[in-house]
Amino acid sequence: MTAFLAAAVIAGTPLLFATLGELITEKAGNLNLGVEGMMLMGAVMGFGVGLWTGNPFLAIIGAIGAGAAGAAIYAVLTVSLRANQVVTGLTLTIFGTGFASFVGKSFMGVPAPASVKSAFVTLEIPLLSKIPVFGPMLFQQDIFIYFGYLITIGASLYLWKTKKGLNLKALGENAAAADASGINVNLYKYVHIIFGGALCGLGGAYMSLVTVPVWQENVVAGRGWIAVALVIFASWKPSKAMVGAILFGGLNILGYRLQSMGIHISQYLLDMVPYVATILIVIISTRKNRKEDMGPADLSNPYFREER
């Protein structure tokens, strides 16, 4: 059981990074459906740089850069040129998928280099790892996963405790009002969209370097789309995003576990559960009409000062 929970945390980590990235993007009022594409760009650059240099640090930088570059294209088009966000995001996914299979063509089936993998060995955290159940689940993991915790806490503090974070939320709620109060709307949007893309790139790199440590085409396998759903599941709260990521990560591996225990439920039916759950959450949160569970009010509306 504990082993399963620990595996769920590992399976949930790429989701956590991507979900936080999309969450921050959406807080800036932009819906970026290019998460899958940015994760793939991060996955291939993380893996490729790791392979060429053997340096885990550079690999991570490569992944961050690739995700951020994808997000930057999206930002130019949707913020400065006011293109439709849904269409631009989908295009980014097409581009990212092509980019990843093109760059990754030469190392198809190659395992991640040992020097990079060694950076992701399990590090037990003293004291905390001795807590029953939660210790082995949360604190006998690799450094990447701990970094995920830090980003989660950091994002929560940023969004609720700092002036910049509060400005960001104001901007997502009503860009015109935020502009009138002196917030540089476009700058905020650019910074947060690109930061969100960097996190998506990191999530992708975790897939190619740790979860599936062999390069294969479409290594992200639809997790970018789950991340888009998870943002809603989490009602735009980083702490809930973490719970959701572990839950969805667990569901992803549950079918195989159950089968090894002799319980035969089709993995394909279990795979439906996260999506059905997300729909139910969307319905319930709309029904309750609780303001704090809803998304940013100005989400996916382009903002143009002269049209105010």
Partner: peptide, 22 residues
Amino acid sequence: VPAAVADMIQGIILFFVLGSEF
């Protein structure tokens, strides 16, 4: 030529067309 190149070309052309609508 890998099919991926066609995907990338498609993506790039689309980016420009989307941008030009502005």
